[in-house]
């Protein structure tokens, strides 16, 4: 464990807590893409299949359980909670995320570290995570204005993978064997997808204006 990875995990954890706070405090999920949340739930379930078979560390196990439970809780809230689901922007959240799922799985079957069920699902979760934010970014573009908590959520989510890139650079130089090309390349693509959001987020912060994404 290095400081970059710890910072990344904490940023990721905070982003999920910010989202849960927004939904719980405002009893609203307006501006949040259910499709992105469903993709994240799939990412965690597909990636943490080894949760009960391989014990790596207490920290690792606790964080996996937190990520799986929180992502499922958010999806449940947005689908089933009678108050929250009313504020879901169903007509704006129209990204065809099923295509993302099929494509990522297809790529994972071709490009993986080892052609086993677990490695294919692991690669699938890595690729899916890279593109999971797309429905959310499209929804933000469509809805124009971004409320603070949702903006912070996306910003933190982008920051977490950026920290992980520093972690991979660190591990590349420190450890003799670097076998994380799938994660590193996919993580770069993932962070690049946030680039335009980061740009507008920084502008809104600099001009102390409300975050407004060009339609």
């Amino acid at each position: 464990m290095n400081i970059f990875r710890l910072a990344g995990d904490m940023t990721h954890l905070i982003s999920v807590l910010v989202l849960l706070l927004k939904i719980y405090a405002t009893k609203s999920c307006s501006g949040i893409s259910l499709k992105t949340q469903e993709l994240y739930a799939m990412v965690f379930v597909a990636r943490y299949l080894d949760l009960f078979t391989d014990y790596i560390s207490f920290y690792n196990t606790v964080m996996k359980i937190v990520f799986i439970l929180s992502s499922l809780a958010i999806v449940w809230c947005m689908r089933m909670h009678r108050v929250v689901k009313r504020s879901y922007d169903k007509e704006l959240d129209t990204f065809r995320h099923n295509i993302l799922i099929v494509v990522c799985f297809g790529v994972a079957v071709i490009i993986n570290e080892k052609f086993t069920l677990r490695e294919v699902f692991w690669a699938f979760s890595i690729y899916l995570e890279a593109v999971a934010i797309l429905p959310q970014l499209v929804l933000l573009q469509r809805s124009g204005n971004v409320d603070n908590l949702t903006g912070q959520y996306v910003f933190l989510l982008g920051g977490y993978r950026a920290f992980y890139i520093l972690n991979w650079i660190y591990r590349y130089f420190v450890e003799q064997r670097f076998s994380r090309w799938i994660s590193a390349i996919s993580g770069l693509i993932q962070t690049a997808l946030y680039a335009d959001f980061f740009y507008y987020y920084f502008l809104s912060w600099k001009n102390n204006a409300k975050l407004h994404l060009p339609a």
Partner: peptide, 10 residues
């Protein structure tokens, strides 16, 4: 081999 290394990252 790299595939056997435990995935210690989240």
């Amino acid at each position: 081999s790299s595939a056997d290394d435990i995935k210690d990252e989240l």
